[in-house]
């Protein structure tokens, strides 16, 4: 057999065909909302963020200090053992300069791009990173390996969420 375009299915249409009524269509928005239980590990993680601290969890078998904390070690497949405070500093493992919003719309002209990064947190095991964003930095100055520190919300504004850290900013010197 060889593929022959004439024999292949799928009929392409332009989005305008729906608006013009050339094709029938149905628009629908499922209104689903969720309340995700945090559980012991992430619950404690968020409580500590509210206090301006970052907490990790240690497995005494592989000796990894893991962040975000988890009640079981996915490598040793056993419960983790200890809570360990780690620093609110770290280094940039990788980063991006993003001009697109979550729904693929573009950021407004003149707005600053999103600066997502994987931050390796000091005090956690080598390579243990979390997803966050960078701030107080010109995009072109960001480098892999750059030292950064958490910029926290004011204590009274914190709500026990990952966004209690506004962003990570470069450490001078």
């Amino acid at each position: 057999m060889e593929l022959d375009k004439k024999e292949l299915g799928a009929t392409h249409y332009k989005e305008s065909a729906l608006k013009e009524g050339k094709l029938l269509s149905l628009a629908k928005q499922p209104k689903l909302q969720y309340a995700w239980d945090n559980g012991p590990a992430i619950g404690r993680y968020l409580e500590e963020l509210k206090e301006g601290r970052i907490i990790a969890r240690k497995c005494n078998k592989c000796r990894r200090i893991m962040i975000p904390p988890r009640m079981f070690c996915e490598l040793c497949w056993r419960p983790t053992d200890e809570w360990v405070y780690v620093k609110d500093t770290g280094k940039v493992n990788t980063f991006s300069i993003c001009y697109v919003n979550w729904d693929a719309s573009r950021i407004k002209k003149g707005d600053k791009p999103h600066l997502p990064a994987v931050i390796e947190i000091d005090g956690a095991s080598e390579g243990m990173g979390i997803l966050h964003v960078l701030g107080e930095v010109e995009p072109e100055k960001i480098k892999i390996g750059m030292k950064v520190k958490a910029a926290w919300k004011k204590p009274e504004e914190r709500e026990g969420a990952i966004t209690d850290i506004l962003y990570f900013k470069p450490v001078r010197g």
């Binding site: 094709l23 029938l24 628009a27 969720y34």
Partner: peptide
């Protein structure tokens, strides 16, 4: 504790 969220997408079916 829990964290609230939603999946804010919509659909257009042919």
């Amino acid at each position: 504790s829990y964290y609230e969220g939603q999946i804010p997408i919509e659909y257009v079916y042919t």
